[in-house]
Amino acid sequence: MGTGAVGNNYEDECRRSLAEEQAKSLAATNNWEHVDRERVHQDWDVLYREIAAFLEGGSLPGDQQVQELVRRHFDIACRFYTPSREAYVGMSLFYAEDEAMRAFHDSYHPGLVDFLGAAIKVFAEQGSGFAPCAGAEASA
């Protein structure tokens, strides 16, 4: 039971990191004025369809091909700002806890938000997997 409390503290840290890092980035970039939002949404749409296909096919969050897709997700997120490991995990928590975000992600597959969250946690925990962003010009 002790690990549950640690997990909750870690999740709270992740939520806090996401909120703080996004607020700082929003303020510094005039609400992410530099982001081509239409392109981001197109790229995430393609990516979520690919992830849903792997989920449907029985893949696991830690599978190499799934982790490569999560790397693309991280690179798309980096078009806004470069999140820390904790903020990136916080993003997965936001997807799961915000009703509209859960509904959006799960519209691709009923289990997508939970699968993606688990895959993001694996990605963030892998020291070598969590390299700096590919850059604002990265495309999926």
Rank of each mutant, 00 (worst) to 15 (best):
K24R: 14
A77P: 01
G58T: 08
E137K: 12
M101P: 01
A5G: 07
V113T: 14
A77R: 03
L26A: 14
Q64W: 04
D75R: 00
W32F: 15
D12N: 15
D98G: 02
A138S: 15
D106W: 00
F104A: 00
Y10W: 09
N31I: 05
Q65G: 00
N31C: 04
E97G: 06
R39Y: 01
V70E: 04
S84R: 02
A138N: 01
S59C: 12
A19M: 04
L26H: 02
F115A: 07
R71Y: 07
P132L: 14
S128G: 03
N30Q: 12
R15T: 01
R79N: 12
R102Q: 07
G4V: 03
A23P: 11
V40T: 11
R102K: 10
G127K: 05
P83F: 08
V6K: 12
I76H: 08
F94P: 00
A96T: 04
Q65N: 06
I51M: 13
F54Q: 09
V35H: 04
M1G: 07
E13S: 11
D43I: 00
E99G: 04
E86H: 05
Y95Q: 01
A52K: 09
Q42S: 10
A119C: 12
L55D: 08
N8Q: 14
S107D: 13
V113H: 08
R79G: 12
D98N: 14
A27H: 12
E56V: 00
F104Q: 06
E38V: 06
D63Q: 10
L47K: 02
D114T: 06
A77S: 05
E137S: 13
V35I: 09
V122T: 15
A5M: 08
E20H: 15
A119F: 06
H34W: 08
E33F: 06
A53I: 08
G129A: 15
V40F: 11
T29I: 03
Q64T: 12
H109W: 03
K121V: 06
L60D: 09
L60R: 14
P83S: 08
A119V: 10
E97N: 09
H105Q: 07
T82R: 03
L55S: 06
V40C: 15
R16W: 00
G4I: 09
A134C: 11
Q64P: 07
Q126A: 13
I76Y: 10
A53W: 12
I120Y: 02
H34F: 08
E11N: 02
N31L: 04
L18F: 11
A100E: 14
K121R: 15
H109C: 01
F80V: 11
L112Y: 11
L60N: 13
K121M: 05
Y81M: 05
E50P: 12
R71W: 05
P110G: 01
R71H: 09
S17N: 12
C14R: 08
G4L: 11
R71M: 13
D12E: 15
E13Q: 13
E50V: 06
A53V: 08
M1N: 01
F123I: 12
V66R: 13
S128P: 03
G2V: 00
L60Y: 08
V35Q: 01
H41V: 05
